[in-house]
């Protein structure tokens, strides 16, 4: 199973939202990292065929998705960034409604709904109205909707936005458990969401993919660029030309965690993590 994006481009007027993205996606969890406005949502919307690319093509197992149409949609599960569900529908009622739209047979829908409500731990809320669900439950219901048709390609656009740390951890485990035999693309700008679970990381900046590889490979490229040192408080200003990942101010001294392409005298080299990787690519004052 393979999804190939070939020179995928989307232009809105004079703004180039996605610029000639070419890559191959395989089963496993691919994290799409990027700052707000980097083109992540536009790219994902093109993959799920909500918006048409200005140019370029998408191939699913070697076939153009424009020709596959419904056959492609059968294998797609999508959870948008701004997930909207009818608040007055009951949880089960909404799942049946979505199953109908996904064209599922009623017998198959029943099996899937029972299985998924158990999986996302919403069995007790089955007969509750959607408006009574908490933020975490709402997102979990979104995942259940996304997985109703047992899709082979799962696209999640910032699914953890607005969740507390515990819900975020549960969500992370849930996503990890579904990514074994599916192509899962998880878009986020929260690095902790994908640390430990991502098989591949894709970094998007200004509409282009600037990095796409296994986390260990990307982190290896970062080696020798992450430093730590402790300096007197009045000397901190000399280090502000570097990207400061972390600073801990003491009474007389400040601990600095820095990113730099050049060697920093007197500093200790640190093992890079994904947070360093992200900040390294988005150091130019972009929103984090």
């Amino acid at each position: 199973m393979e999804l190939n994006l070939n020179k995928l481009t989307k232009q809105y007027g004079s703004k180039l939202a996605v610029d000639r993205v070419t890559l191959t996606l395989q089963p496993g969890l691919t994290a799409l990292l990027g700052a707000n406005g980097s083109g992540k949502t536009t790219l994902l919307r093109m993959i799920v065929d909500i918006i048409k690319p200005t140019s370029g093509e998408i191939f699913y197992d070697g076939k153009n998705i424009m020709k596959l149409k419904e056959q492609y949609l059968c294998d797609i599960g999508y959870m948008p960034q701004h997930l909207g569900m009818y608040p007055n529908f009951k949880v089960e009622e909404f799942l049946y409604y979505m199953a109908t739209l996904k064209g599922l047979k009623k017998s198959y829908a029943k099996i899937q709904i029972d299985k998924l409500l158990h999986k996302v731990n919403l069995e007790e809320k089955r007969h509750h109205k959607i408006k009574t669900l908490s933020g975490g439950m709402y997102q979990r219901l979104g995942i259940a909707v996304c997985l109703l048709n047992d899709p082979k390609i799962v696209i999640l656009d910032e699914p953890t936005a607005g969740l507390d740390p515990k819900e975020r951890m549960n969500f992370k485990n849930l996503i990890s458990s579904i990514s074994q035999d599916k192509i899962v693309i998880l878009s986020t700008h929260i690095v902790s969401d994908i640390s430990e679970i991502a098989d591949r990381i894709m970094i998007m900046k200004d509409g282009s993919i600037i990095s796409y590889d296994r986390p260990e490979v990307l982190l290896k490229e970062m080696e020798g660029k992450v430093y730590a040192l402790t300096v007197p408080n009045d000397n901190v200003v000399n280090y502000e030309k570097y990207t400061i990942v972390n600073r801990k101010v003491g009474r007389e001294e400040t601990y600095l965690h820095l990113l730099s392409d050049e060697k920093i005298e007197g500093a200790t080299l640190l093992t890079p993590d994904l947070n360093d990787l992200y900040l390294y690519h988005f150091k130019d004052g972009e929103e984090f």
Partner: peptide, 18 residues
């Protein structure tokens, strides 16, 4: 037009019955 107010259209659009 019940899907106007709640933005459900985005998940509905990716369904087989669009």
């Amino acid at each position: 037009l019940q899907n106007i107010s709640y933005g459900t259209w985005e998940i509905e659009k990716t369904c087989m019955i669009s």
